[in-house]
Each structure stands twice: as C-alpha cells, then as structure tokens.
C-alpha cells in the first residue's frame, strides 16, 4: 500500500505493528501491545481523514491504487460487453465503454480509463482521451438512445489530451458535440466522478440528469497546478489554488452542482474496492429507479432545466 505524505504517521504505526507481528510469531506476549497500536492507528486514520484539506483530497483522487472505471465495471456488473472504436479514426484506450447489466438492468457504461503500472499508464494515455474517445462515447450514447438503455458515465481524467494530433482532429469539436447530444439524449444519464474531474475533458462525458461525486474526488474548470501557474505565475501555489477553486465533493454539493456525495471507505476508495463499487452500484440503482419513471421528453426537460440555472450572477430586477 502506498501512503501519501499526510498519511505518514499512520504508515509509521502500521510498520511498527508489522514488526511486532513478526517478532510475536507463536508468542502472545506482544498481543496487547499490538492491539493497542492497532486501535491507535484506527483513531489516527479517523482523525486525519475527517480533516482533509482540499489539496489532500486531490492527492487521494490521484492515488495510484484507486479503483478505475474497468474495476468498477468488473465489480458492479453482472455482465459486460466492451464496445470499441469511434468508426472514424481509432479506438481510444483512455475512454472505455460498453453494454452491461447491473442487478439485471441494462445500462451503457462509459468512462475514462487510467492505467495501473507504467506500461498500462502509457497504453491508457494517463486517462487523457483524444477526440476519438469523445466520438466513441458519442456513438455509444446514440446506440443506448436507440435501444432505450440508460447511460452511466464514470469521470476520471486529468484532462482531455492536449496534443498536436488531438487539435488536428478537433478535440474541441468532439467535446462540444457530446455536450449538445447529452443535453437532449432521450434516455436517463447518470454521471459519477470517481477520481479526477478535470475541466472540458471531464464534462465531455459528464452531462447528466443526476451527477454524483465520490467523497475523495475533485471537479473543476482547471487543475490546481495549472491554475497556480496561470494566476500565481508559478507551480508552487497548487495547495492555495485547490483551496480557492473549491473543487471537492462537499464544495460542489454546497454549490448545488451535484446531487450527492458517495461515501468512500475510511482511508479512501483504494482501501476497499468491493465496498467502493458497492456504494457506486447502490447509487446507480437508486437513481435509475427515479429516472426510469420519466418519459424521454421529461428527461430532456429535467436536464435542460438543471443546467439552465447553473452559475451565479446578479440581476438588477431581482436585487434592486
């Protein structure tokens, strides 16, 4: 298990526990001490995780051992058929999708995909989709609409890929088309941020009737690092930027941008894949129960009304 900088006190305790465990093989003299330290570690974890800063949440959202889209699919669905390709250019490995059943209900699941080790990370382009990724998502959403199947999108990207070929093939156009399509898609859409929700790359599959964020994730118009580099002219102010951007699940719930926060196991989603996937699954089923009752026109109105009120401005008529 990898520990983040702010988890070091826990890491040290657990190392001590491991050492004592090794020493105590076949001997119960040390058991009380081990139990005492275990309890202390639990308390410490509880106290550290109940007071996380926004930057620490960002770190957790990027934890290399966090569950990714395909992990959730694996653990949540009864069946899954992955579908590939945008039919124009390529199959984007940073964007996955396919038909699945969750508790017997058919859904189209689409999500950003990150890689676990160096090779996989490169293969998945660090979860940064190219235009063909967004166009694959577009195609799968149209397919879902055609067959009346609800769409579930899982967001986890450090951004749409800012590369030369991505521009050449119309990264902006691909994202824009998805935004327009998703706002008037005739089937329910549920969007869940499972890791990083970075700007246009995230919203490109993120327009939903209901939007959720897992507890230790972030969603913002820009990453803290880029924000720091633009507004402070140096990368050093990422923590302040994270704080100023108010990018956590709790923040977005308060801003009424999202519909709810999905609780993670203590210590973060990576501590217990099963439990995390179960929580996400339960939320999807709850949302589907509500949304399945709505007719296509109602779903569209619901989505358009939801987005129409987003933003904060002053209006002379209302305030004078």
């Amino acid at each position: 298990m990898q520990y983040l900088d702010f988890e070091q006190p826990i890491a040290e305790l657990e190392k001590k526990i491991d050492e004592l465990n090794e020493l105590s093989v076949g001997d119960e003299v040390l058991t009380p001490e081990i139990n005492r330290l275990r309890k202390k570690a639990d308390q410490l974890r509880e106290s550290i995780f109940s007071n996380l800063t926004r930057w620490q949440r960002v770190q957790l959202a990027r934890h290399p051992e966090r569950p990714y889209t395909l992990d959730y699919i694996d653990l949540m669905t009864d069946e899954f058929i992955e579908l590939h390709g945008d039919r124009y250019h390529a199959d984007d490995k940073a964007m996955v999708g396919g038909l699945a059943t969750i508790d017997g209900q058919s859904v189209m699941i689409i999500g950003h995909q990150k890689g676990r080790d160096t090779k996989q990370r490169q293969y998945r382009n660090f979860g940064m989709a190219n235009p063909e990724g967004y166009r694959k998502a577009y195609r799968l959403m149209k397919t879902a609409e055609k067959f009346g199947i609800p769409v579930v999108t899982l967001l986890d990207t450090p951004g749409a890929y800012p590369g030369l070929e991505a521009e050449e093939r119309g990264q902006a156009e691909a994202i824009a088309k998805n935004l327009k399509l998703m706002s008037v898609l005739e089937v329910p859409i549920i969007s869940i941020v499972i890791g990083e929700g970075a700007s246009g790359g995230a919203i490109g599959i993120g327009v939903g009737n209901e939007i959720y964020m897992m507890e230790n994730t972030w969603y913002s118009v820009i990453s803290p690092e880029s924000c720091s580099s633009i507004l402070w002219k140096t990368w050093e102010y990422k923590e302040q930027a994270a704080s100023a951007l108010k990018l956590t699940a709790k923040d977005l719930l308060e801003m009424k941008i999202i519909d709810g926060v999905i609780k993670e196991p203590l210590g973060g989603a990576h501590r217990d894949f099963e439990k995390s996937a179960q929580a996400v699954k339960e939320q999807i089923l709850k949302s589907l129960k509500r949304l399945n009752k709505m007719k296509p026109a109602e779903l569209i109105d619901h989505r358009i009304e939801k987005y129409s009120v987003m933003g904060v401005w002053l209006e002379a008529d209302q305030n004078s």
């Binding site: 994202i175 824009a176 935004l179 327009k180 998703m182 706002s183 008037v184 700007s199 246009g200 919203i203 993120g206 327009v207 969603y219 913002s220 118009v221 820009i222 100023a244 951007l245 108010k246 990018l247 977005l252 801003m255 941008i257 989505r303 358009i304 987005y307 129409s308 987003m310 933003g311 904060v312």
Partner: peptide, 14 residues
Amino acid sequence: ESVYSLMQLPKTSA
C-alpha cells in the same frame, strides 16, 4: 468561478 464556469459549457450547448 471554477466549476460554475465549467458548467457554462453544457448550459450554453443545451
């Protein structure tokens, strides 16, 4: 305006 700005993308597109 952080995520409020981001939400102007789907809002205008819708």
